[in-house]
């Protein structure tokens, strides 16, 4: 029961919800950049949200299955194909042993999540299966996937659903994800501990600028380009806690937004913190794209998180009901 990497992509890693409780040792969270994409891919195949999945960037890998699986893709649309036939996004799909998955073209988004029903067989490191690239630990051998890697899958019985000459069958439902990734919305943030260090004009520029994501952006952080921001203080800051979503002001007057592989402490002013509900949307933006930032209150941040959590719960319930109905009628 396995999945083989025929050709590796730009950066294919195993990720789950991340590794917590070790930040005091300098060990970062890792985990899926887009937690909503992670949850949706998992729910569609009947997994719980925290099951480890494959996070794929473009150029994407070529993958072969040596066993029948129930599979789902969520997040970025890289126009996936199974032996030349289009593999739809956000839809549970039964696939026969022996088929190959290719990704032809980057249509939208930056990170695609591939989940298999039952999940991968992996060892936990410090309570998580996420790949920690800095230490070379966790996930699959602590590194990005390479050609020839064979990832073991947990036992499943989905093969019984497929006819012997049936290569692929899309189940007759898909997730509506438009509420999770609203188009052309600003990325919302709450003012950070050193927000007051900005002068009045910079505070206003922070929200008036269309911030462009530069090419020096990755899973550790997004370096932004836009209006120069000025500090009123020139005091050196001693290092203190940061976390994914922290917006730091670099000495050159440009901000950086820390992402899930970021370090755990930093010495640059923390001018803001992107709200959790908007991190998935940000994770799906890539180099060259731009967005405005909008300051919101903590109450707004928690309300947005609550709403997103409820939408995900509803999606999970729907997926569970449909999957169990299908499995019971077919047997």
């Amino acid at each position: 029961m396995s999945l083989q990497i025929l050709k590796p992509g730009l950066l294919d890693t195993i990720q789950d919800e991340g590794r917590y409780g070790y930040s005091h040792l300098g060990i970062n969270h890792s985990g899926a950049m887009d937690r909503v994409g992670l949850a949706i891919a998992n729910y569609l195949v009947g997994n719980s949200a925290e099951e480890a999945v494959l996070e794929i960037h473009f150029p994407a890998p070529e993958i072969r299955l040596d066993t029948p699986v129930l599979l789902a893709l969520a997040g970025a649309n890289f126009s996936a194909e199974v032996d030349g036939v289009s593999l739809p996004l956000h839809t549970p799909v039964l696939l026969q042993a022996g088929v190959s998955i290719k990704f032809q073209k980057k249509l939208s988004g930056t990170r695609c999540y591939l989940a298999v029903g039952g999940g991968f067989v992996l060892e936990h490191w410090l309570g998580s299966c996420s790949t920690n690239l800095a230490t070379g630990a966790g996930g699959w051998k602590g590194r990005a996937l390479r050609a020839g890697d064979v990832l073991a899958l947990r036992q499943n019985t989905f093969g019984a659903q497929l006819g012997s000459d049936e290569k692929m069958r899309c189940l007759p439902w898909s997730a509506n994800v438009s509420d999770f990734y609203p188009a052309n919305q600003p990325i919302r943030f709450c003012p950070g501990p050193e927000y007051a260090w900005l002068d009045a004009e910079s505070k206003s520029n922070l929200e008036k600028t269309d911030w462009q994501i530069t090419a020096q952006s990755n899973r550790m952080g997004y370096r932004l380009k836009g209006a120069g921001l000025q500090q009123q203080h020139t005091t050196e800051l001693v290092s203190s806690a940061v976390t994914p979503g922290t917006i730091q002001l670099l000495p050159n007057g440009q901000p950086i937004i820390l992402m899930t592989d970021s370090q755990t402490t930093g010495g640059y002013p923390r001018i803001g913190q992107v709200i959790q509900a908007d991190l998935p949307q940000l994770a799906q933006l890539g180099a060259g794209q731009s967005f405005p930032l909008q300051a919101v209150s903590l109450d707004t941040a928690f309300a947005a998180l609550q709403e997103q959590t409820q939408l995900l719960r509803r999606l999970q319930t729907g997926c569970t009901l449909k999957l169990s109905a299908m499995l019971s009628t077919q047997h």
């Binding site: 917590y20 409780g21 930040s23 001693v238 203190s240 806690a241 976390t243 109450d299």
Partner: peptide, 28 residues
């Protein structure tokens, strides 16, 4: 979720989803 002591500060990271669920009447 995490306690991050530094030179002169302590960062406390929390799981807001869980707090919203367990203490629905309090802002986390």
């Amino acid at each position: 979720l995490d306690l991050i002591p530094a030179y002169s500060s302590l960062g406390v990271l929390f799981d807001a989803r869980r707090l919203l669920r367990e203490f629905p009447h309090q802002q986390p």
